[in-house]
Amino acid sequence: MKAFTYERARTPAEAAAAAERHPGSRFIAGGTNLLDLMKLEIEAPPHLIDVNGLKLDKIEPVEDGGLRIGALVRNTDLASDPRVRRDYAVLARALLAGASAQLRNKATTAGNLLQRTRCPYFYDTNLPCNKRVPGSGCSAIGGYTRNHAIVGASDACIATHPSDMAVAMQLLDAGVETVRANGSTRVIPIADFYRLPGNTPHIENTLVSGELITSVVLPRPLGGYHAYRKVRDRASYAFALVSVAAVVQADGSGRVALGGVAHKPWRVAAADGAMPRGAGATSDALLAGARTTSENAYKVPLVRRTLESVLVDAKKG
């Protein structure tokens, strides 16, 4: 690990200002992903700003019937909140399908959104990776691609986003609230939060340098049947091969998002519209234009079958 200086921020504005004062610095909350990357020197911030003291650890109702989730709410606490379990079950299920209890006890809402890919070539510092070293090339393309993206990828990067929680947030149309060093705040709709890799896979979201996530806002509950179905190589504590997040209404309408298939949580407007026509039409819409390799082509039928299974369960209620 490279050496760094360390400070504890007391307010969001103070944290954002500190980030502006220290180019290349990182905010740290749970640290479960950042420290892992720092040990490998994939991340090497010269300065860490500890944001755990910012008091952003509340879950509060908002006026239109939604919920505001503080950036520092731990994954365990978010999944355990009675309102989340009752009204946003897809989110609770996604959280509980991710990581281990030890990690969920540390990992925060904002940190989970900002998790970096688990592409093994991103982690192997002996090999080129456009995400780790811009312009160096992609070792995954032509490499072992069983876990890689099948939609939205580019010639520069075929990595997937690892988060389960973010797939549910995408499905629920969450808003990401932030503050910048000059004190200005904004809400980024989650649909605009993540970027496709294009030629700049090292830029993963639309936050500007030093911008701090303060909370995530959920719109009012959707009702319906909620499911988060994660398919992985073992029953627990593994990243998704594919995952399906869905909310299905009694009339068969609904919305769907996928994990494990793209550089970001994957949602397609036309797929939501296709849901009353069943899993085949919906997965065709979700995976239109998919580019697969012999190693990850299995994800196409796996998405369709997983969605089919979710829709069957939804009918049973």
Binding site: Y6, I28, G31, T32, L35, D36, K39, L48, D50, N52, T76, S100, A101, Q102, L103, N105, K106
Partner: peptide
């Protein structure tokens, strides 16, 4: 493993179990 995958470093902090390998002492 020293990277949060094996759980051998599990300790209980303020009543909650965590991986002590993925947490800084100063925090």
């Amino acid at each position: 493993c020293d990277q949060g995958q094996c759980g051998a470093c599990t300790v209980i902090v303020n009543g909650r179990r965590i991986n002590s390998c993925l947490s800084l002492a100063v925090m």
